[in-house]
Design a protein around this nucleic acid. Sequence first.
DNA 1: CGAGTTTGACCAGCGC
DNA 2: GCGCTGGTCAAACTCG
Length: 552
Amino acid sequence: MSFSRENNGYSSLWSFVIIFGPPSQATLLNTSVEKNLQPLPPLLLLMDQQGRELTFFRSGDFLRQNPAALSDHLTDNSIDRGKSTIKEVDFFSNDRTDNLPLVQEMKGESSSAIVDSVVNTGLNLLTSSSGVSEKENGNKLPNNELKKLQAELDRLHDENKNLRSILDQISKSYKELQAQLLMAMQKQAKGNRGEQKGKLNGIASPIMSPQQFMDPRPFAALDVNDPSVSDDKAQDVSVSPTNTTEALSQINPGKQASTDDGLDQTSQSWGSPKSPRLEPGKNEEQVPEVPFRKARVSVRARSEAPLITDGCQWRKYGQKMAKGNPCPRAYYRCTMAVGCPVRKQVQRCAEDKTILITTYEGNHNHPLPPAATAMANTTSAAAAMLLSGSITSKEGLPSNNSFFPSLPYASTMATLSASAPFPTITLDLTQSPNPIPVFRSPLSTTFPLPLHGCPQPQLLGHPMYVPSKLPTAAIPSVQLGQRHASMVETVTAAIASDPNFTAALAAAISSVIGTQKSNDGSSSNISAPNGGLTGLPGSPQLPQSCTTFSTN
DNA sequence: CGAGTTTGACCAGCGC
DNA sequence: GCGCTGGTCAAACTCG
C-alpha cells in the first residue's frame, strides 16, 4: 500500500513510514523518499506483523507515544533496546541504484536531520500540534533551528502554490488543444460521412459526425472546454467531474435536457427499442435526425458475486432471460438520487459464468461518493475512448487505436462494438493486466500496471492519488493528457478488479479512515493533493476511487 | 411500514 | 401481420 503522489514535484512529495509490529518492536519502512528530493516527514502506518491492523499516525503522534522507537531509529544506536530493530524500506527503490534489498539499516543520518523531517511537513500535513512539539523537543532543538524550519516550511508552501498555478495553466492549455483536436476530427468525420448521412435523412440539417450525434459533451465531461463543441453544456446539470459514465450518458443531449418531468427515465434509456423515439418538434434541433444512439460501457470482470460493488446504490427493476444465455439479465437503476437516469445491466457470461458483465449507461445527476468515482472514471475514460473514435459507422469499426495509438492495451483490454444499435465499449478485466505493454510504454514510470496478485506499493498508490480528473495534475507532461488519464482509469479498474488487492486495500483504507477520525484530520491533506482535484462533498478524505471495484 | 426484489405483463422495434 | 426479442412497468412479495 502506498500513498505516493507525484503531481507537484518535489515539494509535494511526502512520505509514509509503515511500521510493522507493535511500536516497541517496530520496523520502519520509509516509503517515499526520492533521491533528489527533500524528504518530508513520514506519516506512520502501524501494522501488526501480519500487516492486518493498520493505524495511521502522524509522525509526531507516534513519536510521542513511542519515543524509544525514534530514538533507536535516529541514533542507530547500540543502546540495548535489543528487540527493537529499526529498518528502512524504500518502496521506490527502483529509482535507486541500491534498490535491493529493500530492507536496509538506516545509517549515517544525523538525528537532527530526522528531527527535521519530523517537524517540517512541507505540505502542512501535520497540524501545528503534530510532530514533536516544541515543548517536548525544545531541549533538543534550538530556537533558531525551529525558525529555520518554519521558514523552510513557508518556502515550500509558496513553492507549492507556484507549482499549482503552473499546473493549472498547463491543464488549461491542454484542454484547449484537445478541444481543437476534437473539432478537427469532427470536421473530418463530417466529410467522410456526408453521403451516408444524406441518405439517412432528407433534412437539410448539417450532417453530424459520430461524435456530434453522440454529443460532444462527453468530452466536456472530461473537462474539455470547448464552447463550440459543447453548446448545450450549460443545461447539463450533471457535469460534475466525478459523475459516473457521464461521458456516455451525455450522448443524448436533447433527451436529457428535455425530460419533461425530470424523471423521465425512458427518454434516457439504454437505447432500448423505446429510446429512439423522438418527441416531434421538441428536440429536433438538438437531436439529429438519425435515431440517436447511446454509448455503453461494458465491464467484464470475474466475480462470484451477483454484482460488482461500484459505489452506487442500485435498485433492480427487472430481469429477463436473454436469448442464448442461460443466465438471466438483471436491470438496475441508480437510486442514489431521485431521477438519476443511470442504469446498468448485469449478466453472467454464457461461456464463462464466473465472468460478470456489467453494462453502464447514463450519467448520474448527483454527486458520487468516492467509492463510485473509480467506476465513473473508468467508464468515462472508456466512453471517451469510444466517442473519440469514428466508430459509429455501420460499416464497422475504424480502429480506435488510430486515435489512441499510445494505448497499448486498447486493443486487448477494450473492445468496441458498432454492430449493436448503440456503440459499446467493453473493458475486459477478466484477464490479469498484462504489464508488458504498459511497462514498455514511456509512461511506465507514471502509470505502471500492477503485477497481478502482487501489487507494488508505488502502483497501488496511484488509484488514490492520481484521480482521473487530474490527469494533467498528475502527469508532468501535458502531452500525455487525457489518454493517460484513460489509462490510469482503466488500470485502476484492472487493479481493483483483483479481489486480493481489493480486500487488502479496503482493510487498510478503512483502518486509515477510522484512525483519521480520531486523529483530527491529520491526513486531510492526503485527499487534496492536486490542485483542482477535490474529493466529493462529504466524502472521506481519502481520494476517490480506492475501493470502488471490489466485488462482493 | 418503507425500501428493495421478484415476476408476469406490456410495449415497441425488427425480421421474416 | 406475426412472432421474437429486449426493455420497462407495476403489483405482489420479502425483508429489516
